[in-house]
Design a protein around this nucleic acid. Sequence first.
DNA 1: GGAAAATGATTAT
DNA 2: TAATCCTTTTCCG
Length: 295
Amino acid sequence: MPEGHSIHRLARQFTSVFAGQQLSVSSPQGRFAAGAARLDGQALIAAEAHGKQLFLEFDNELFLRIHLGLYGAFDFGGDETFRRSSSIGAPRRVGEREIADDGGEPAYAGPPPPKGAVRVRLTSDHGWADLRGPTACEVLTPEEQRRVLEKLGPDPLQPRADPREFVRRLSARRTPIGLLLMNQEVLAGVGNVYRAEVLFRRLISPWRLARSITQEEALGLWNDIAGVMADGVAAGRIITTLPEHRVDASIPVPVSEAHYVYKRQGLPCRRCGTEVAMTEMAARKLYWCPSCQQT
DNA sequence: GGAAAATGATTAT
DNA sequence: TAATCCTTTTCCG
């Protein structure tokens, strides 16, 4: 997926192109037809992200909750306003990069016929958004939305988030830190890439039990996550390496230089040269440097 | 043409 | 721990 940074970009995109506008909502694929009917014709009040969840709030006090899962993605199109970003979500073709619009197209003449399994199509006077492959796509009442939110841990991308809440949810647990960073009830927004990268950056072993993580280490993790994910929001991709750890100094950062350990098993650690290791942890691939991350 | 993989999460055993 | 869901792209034969 699309980790938290992608969802915050989506919230921003929806706000900038759809907020305040009346939307047609449909489900070309048919699986969300009933839900779409409850939102069709309403104006979009706001778009907000909490971790990996996107909430679209409509004028009739209903929320559309979307979770992209592993491979969900939105495609956008429309007039000039829409040309900045045409795809946000799961990686498509060019590494993890969002696909840039080529520009130079004829004047906007309405949305194209849906291609593939489009769960939801949102259309305004100026453009459209197609959603494919989400894990979750459902209409919620304010009460139902509140219940979803209160389960989630704090989201480091939200200015109001409280790092002490993260520390509290970690404390005393006999669970490896590598597992808890992926647990959305502990911390909302981190996925497999940021999990591996941030543990490396803080030189912490993924197997350290949470109860052995000091408050300083936990706050160090929090701050690093907040910083690196904010960079992800700005760049539209995950880049965690520091310039001094890149061989190729070109800008933009090539895919091959963007990560310390994620998908680098067998390659030399950028910091110490030891081979990066990989194993499965709870059915997800875990990458780490056995030398830099001993404790 | 078919299998595998992908930045995820829930439910069942 | 295993099975299941959801969709597209990439890689292999």
